[in-house]
Computed example of a mutant assay.
Amino acid sequence: MIYGEFAEAGVATVYEACGRRGLLDVDLVPLRPGSRVAGPARIALCGQGDNRAVHEIMTHLRPGEILVLTMPVAAPVALFGDLLATQALTAGAAGVLVNAAVRDSADLAKLSMPVWSRWRRSTGATKDIRGQVDVAVTIGDTEITPGDVLVLDDDGATCVRQSEVDSVALAVRERLAKEDGLRRRWATGEFSYDAYGMRAEDGS
């Protein structure tokens, strides 16, 4: 499946294969370092400082999806914790991206479902604003619409438009093949400085 290919290739490779488009240019911390995951986005746009929309989105969540939780303005308010994680895990979420804070981080780090967040805080969220579910949101200057594919690993996250998944998958395969060839050349002692013509340009 393409999602597995994207996860294995990783954020940097998929981002480059997309023509350096789609990067979520914010600091995202994986609670379980070394995790790699990809899948379609299921989005909750919460009210500011409120996580009622997170409770609602759980009723929409499907296996293999990446749960995306955000607010109009990112802030260190805990939108997600152990009890909500239990629901997401039961629903079969492939991963969770929280453009805010999480709580119960030690417990979340033990789950088979990896979680990425901007902050770790105990600051509680209210449950007074319904917010919106299954809507487009912008994180790190990148718009994510429901069904777009997110790739997450230790380098952060990148987004692939749903309409571009097949073409990007082909570009990823081509890039990986090219990188394998370069890796073999560098392993024999060849320098990228020479292969890319930089030495000749510098006259050294």
Rank of each mutant, 00 (worst) to 15 (best):
T13D: 07
C18M: 14
C18P: 05
C18T: 12
C18A: 14
G19D: 13
G19W: 12
R20H: 14
R21L: 14
R21Y: 09
L23D: 04
V26Y: 02
V26H: 03
D27Y: 06
L28H: 02
L28E: 02
P30Y: 05
L31Y: 07
R32F: 06
P33L: 14
P33Y: 13
G39H: 02
A41N: 10
A41W: 07
L45A: 08
N51S: 12
H55F: 08
I57D: 00
I57V: 11
M58H: 03
M58Y: 01
T59V: 05
R62G: 00
R62I: 00
P63F: 09
G64P: 08
I66H: 01
L67E: 01
T70S: 14
T70W: 11
T70P: 12
T70E: 11
M71Q: 15
P72I: 10
V73P: 02
A74F: 05
P76F: 11
L79I: 06
G81N: 12
D82Q: 15
D82R: 15
L83P: 02
L83Y: 14
L84M: 13
A85L: 10
T86R: 13
T90R: 14
A91L: 09
A93I: 09
A94E: 03
A94T: 02
V96M: 07
N99V: 13
N99H: 15
A101V: 09
A101E: 08
R103K: 15
R103S: 15
R103L: 12
A106E: 12
D107L: 10
L108K: 06
A109L: 02
A109M: 02
L111F: 01
P114N: 05
P114R: 04
